[in-house]
């Protein structure tokens, strides 16, 4: 365990962060929502994500400054994105401005067919809580408590925080178990009965899990 180094992410970690978002969005499945919603290949989306990260705009999951990473033998092996939601300047707005700026117009138009269906699974980040948003641990390093350790690094960075929150697809059982293990409990469930949602997302049910810090 002592071989892991924890540090804030920097611009050299962008490729890993792009992969973190892709894997976190897949949620243990093969369905990558961004490809489905915007009708782009995974490679095309990855290239756009990279450009978005390199804008270095704070306040959403495409912000390098919101990530802590774990290094093992000089290689980044895990990352968690987290922030405290700013009610005046919500992460959803910053994210959609970035996406809208970089995505091709035809992809944005294509997304309008997904909008109505996917909106049922939107959960607002609880204001004041530290929201863990993108979580990824390389397969070889799972089971080493890295989610808990990286979360603690985020807590250190956000002194005074009393509540943690994370959103997870209901069918991602390993992730739910991992969050339960470190003290998260389900606080909200949203579900869509529209079968079309599975054309865009890896599941039709999502949980908001919360944890109170001592």
């Amino acid at each position: 365990m002592s071989k892991y180094i924890f540090r804030p992410a920097n611009v050299n970690d962008v490729d890993f962060l792009v992969n973190t978002i892709i894997e976190a969005e897949k949620s243990g499945s093969e369905i990558f929502s961004y490809s489905k919603v915007f009708n782009l290949s995974e490679e095309e989306v990855a290239a756009i994500f990279k450009e978005m990260f390199l804008e270095e705009i704070d306040g959403c999951e495409f912000s390098i400054s919101n990530y802590m990473v774990a290094e093992f033998e000089n290689k980044v092996v895990a990352a968690i994105g987290a922030w405290v939601e700013d009610k005046e300047n919500p992460s959803s707005k910053i994210k959609s401005n970035l996406l809208g700026y970089y995505l091709p117009k035809e992809s944005i138009l294509f997304a309008s067919q997904a909008s109505k269906v996917t909106s049922e699974l939107i959960i607002i980040h609880p204001p004041g809580a530290l929201s863990l948003v993108m979580v990824y641990v390389s397969p070889d390093h799972r089971g080493n408590n890295l989610i808990d350790l990286l979360t603690k690094e985020h807590i250190k960075k956000n002194q005074g925080i009393t509540d943690l929150a994370v959103q997870v697809m209901a069918n991602n059982i390993p992730a739910i178990r991992a969050y339960n293990k470190i003290g998260f409990e389900t606080a909200q469930i949203v579900k869509s009965e529209d079968e079309k949602i599975l054309n865009f997302l890896p599941g039709n049910e999502k949980l908001l899990m919360k944890k109170k810090l001592n």
């Binding site: 919603v37 959803s92 970035l98 997304a111």
Partner: peptide
């Protein structure tokens, strides 16, 4: 209520098309 992140993106794109202009990222934020 319907003004979510995906619709925001679509909205901005439609406004740009209708008024034949392009917003800068800083302006949007």
């Amino acid at each position: 209520a319907e003004w979510n992140s995906l619709n925001h993106m679509i909205l901005i794109s439609e406004v740009e098309t209708a008024f034949n202009l392009k917003f800068k990222l800083k302006e949007l934020n």
